[in-house]
Simulated assay, not measured.
Amino acid sequence: MGSIHALAAQARRLNTEAGAPSIPWLYFFTDPLRTPDPCAIAKRLPRGAAVVYRHFGADDRNAVARKLAALCRSRALLLLVAGDPSLARRVGATGVHWPEKRLPARRDHGFALETAAAHSTEALARAAEFGADACILAPVFETRSVSGNPPLGLFHASQMARSACLPVVALGGVDARSARCLSGRGFAGIAAVDAFGA
């Protein structure tokens, strides 16, 4: 629990530094293998944090999404469903998180919050053009993700965040320890997977 509090405190500082109070400062990205019980983690998150439900086409995605949606409503958390506006609408989620390769050409789904993933400067520009409320930039550090994307490195990721036209949230190898390195580098928040299970 202590690591979540430390992560949340640093994420709030980054959000304040970036002047981006309209977006969540902390994002928990679910993963079927690395976070098999996302509801248990969501119960430990501070109010105002976001849960990004990445279902990867799981057979039980409807049931899990409904359970997460109810939990998020009861705890004042924001639920984003990854890449599936229909599922997001069915469960009453706050919005959608768009994987980089599935980002639509324009924003017209009517959600209060839409975020987009980016792994490059070009993708960051597309997210801004789309009208995303925030961009999740990854991976900043070394990570256990199987995405295959090499780490951007703190210096390069920071340059990208500072030059972006929308708030940028750091993901990839971010934990309570590495999060301290993000201060003053243009990031508006923190996203993580494994750090919430620690």
Rank of each mutant, 00 (worst) to 15 (best):
A157F: 06
S183N: 03
R107Y: 00
S178E: 07
R107G: 03
C181G: 03
L154T: 14
C181K: 14
L171R: 02
C165I: 02
A127M: 06
Q159R: 15
F111D: 04
V169F: 09
P151K: 02
A105L: 13
Q159G: 09
S163D: 14
L124E: 03
T143G: 10
Q159F: 06
A132V: 04
H156Y: 14
F141H: 09
L182A: 07
A125F: 01
S163C: 06
A138N: 08
P104M: 05
C165N: 12
L113I: 04
A164N: 06
G110S: 05
R102W: 13
A125D: 10
C181Q: 15
L137Q: 01
V140L: 05
A134N: 03
S163K: 14
P139R: 04
L103M: 11
S183D: 01
G131L: 01
H156T: 12
A164L: 03
A125G: 11
A127L: 04
L124R: 04
A112Q: 11
E114Q: 13
A138G: 07
S158F: 02
S120W: 01
G173H: 04
L137Y: 00
A112T: 13
L152D: 07
F111V: 09
A138H: 06
C165T: 04
L154G: 13
H156V: 13
R126Y: 00
P150Y: 00
R177K: 13
E122P: 01
F141M: 06
F155N: 12
I136M: 05
L103V: 05
E142W: 10
A123M: 14
A161V: 08
S183H: 07
H156L: 12
L166S: 02
F155S: 13
Q159M: 14
C135N: 00
E122N: 09
E142A: 15
A125W: 00
A161T: 05
T121N: 09
P151V: 07
F111K: 02
S183E: 13
E122M: 09
K101C: 06
R177M: 01
E142T: 11
F155D: 15
V146I: 06
S120V: 05
P150H: 01
P151E: 10
A116M: 04
V140Q: 02
H156M: 09
V146M: 11
T115G: 15
F155A: 15
F141G: 05
S158Y: 04
H109G: 11
Q159K: 14
R126D: 08
A157E: 11
I136E: 00
C135L: 07
A123T: 10
V169I: 15
F111E: 07
A134S: 12
T115D: 07
S158V: 01
M160F: 04
N149G: 03
H119G: 10
G172E: 11
G110W: 08
D108Q: 13
E129T: 13
A138F: 00
S147G: 12
L182G: 05
F111G: 07
S120N: 08
E142N: 10
E142S: 13
L113G: 07
L154E: 12
A112Y: 01
M160R: 09
A179L: 11
T143F: 10
H156P: 00
A134K: 03
T121Q: 14
A161E: 08
S178P: 01
D133E: 08
L171W: 02
A157D: 10
F141V: 09
A125Q: 14
F155C: 12
A127W: 02
A128N: 03
C181E: 15
F130R: 05
A128K: 11
E129V: 08
S158T: 10
R180T: 15
V174K: 02
A128Y: 03
A105G: 12
T115C: 12
